[in-house]
Nucleic acid binder design. Structure first.
Length: 262
DNA sequence: CTGAGATCCTGGGGGC
DNA sequence: TGCCCCCAGGATCTCA
């Protein structure tokens, strides 16, 4: 998503910003969203955890959280709204538009000040050098919470969602409900590797379009075609053939194999 | 600090 | 065919 977005919008100047649903655009109240953004320029697009960061020439940032159904769509000049639930529209000086749409209205587009520590509550990036076996081990000490709940906690490891938590636990052969502190050394090693492997493979396939996810270029992902457990209730485990079960853990649907995840 | 649960939303699927 | 019910889920908040 970030790579496609960067290709499409870096260098563009914001001519105006239209907010159709006020709660979606979060900003300092002194001025309107449009007054804040007008004439600023996009210099980079990055990511921290699941948050997309659109960096501006003013050193401020537009931090976008898509949650489940949020979409960012880049539209050529002169085209109609690309999505019926468009809540925020940035129009660039060249006529292109960046449309933020979200059926469920859970997503947010937040304007942050230069050096504002908006990501203080996010944990380690799982694909960074900092995510070592030693650090992973230290994080798990004394944690009684189920390992799957731990993986979903963005303040520990940033960026793992429900799909990738299920897939990483299957790949590592670990029961989702196992208390985090009780993972053996080999299990911790397998899980750390599985987290990185699952995330890298998913990114290579442009994400998981389980429902109707599309990236900024309107392309569907491909990882939904290679999911081992997520959404595969009753189907055979790709490793042992046992039926995949679904339980609820941390208020989330959890798919796993009772036979080969222990 | 940890862990658990509620909350926000709407489309879509299942049941009848 | 139509209606009702319920469910999916990420981040943030509250509470014990």
């Amino acid at each position: 998503m970030v790579r496609g977005l960067a290709n499409a919008v870096v260098g563009k100047t914001i001519a105006r910003a239209e907010v159709r649903m006020a709660k979606i655009a979060v900003h300092a109240p002194e001025r309107s969203f449009d007054e804040h953004l007008r004439d600023d320029r996009i210099v980079a697009v990055g990511r921290r955890g699941k948050f997309i960061v659109i960096e501006l020439a003013s050193a401020r940032g537009l931090v976008v959280s898509l949650r489940m159904t949020g979409r960012l769509i880049v539209q050529p000049p002169g085209t109609a709204d690309a999505h019926p639930y468009t809540h925020v529209l940035l129009t660039f000086s060249d006529g292109h538009r960046l449309c933020f749409a979200d059926v469920r209205q859970f997503g947010r587009m937040r304007l942050v000040a230069p050096k504002e520590p908006w990501d203080e509550r996010l944990g380690v990036e799982p694909l960074s050098e900092a995510f070592t076996f030693e650090r992973f081990t230290a994080m798990l000490v004394g944690r009684r919470t189920p390992i799957k709940a731990f993986l979903l906690d963005q303040s520990k490891i940033a960026g793992i969602g429900n799909i990738y938590a299920c897939e990483a636990l299957w790949q590592a052969g670990i029961r989702p409900g196992k208390p985090a502190q009780r993972l053996s050394k080999p299990a911790r090693s397998r899980l750390r590797d599985a987290i990185q492997d699952v995330l890298m493979r998913a990114i290579a396939l442009r994400g998981s379009s389980v429902d109707d996810y599309v990236d900024a270029e309107g392309l569907r992902g491909g990882f939904q075609n290679v999911l081992a457990v997520y959404g595969r209730l009753g189907q055979p485990c790709l490793r042992c053939g046992a039926r995949i079960v679904r339980t609820v853990l941390a208020q989330r649907g959890t798919w796993w194999c009772r036979n080969c995840q222990r």
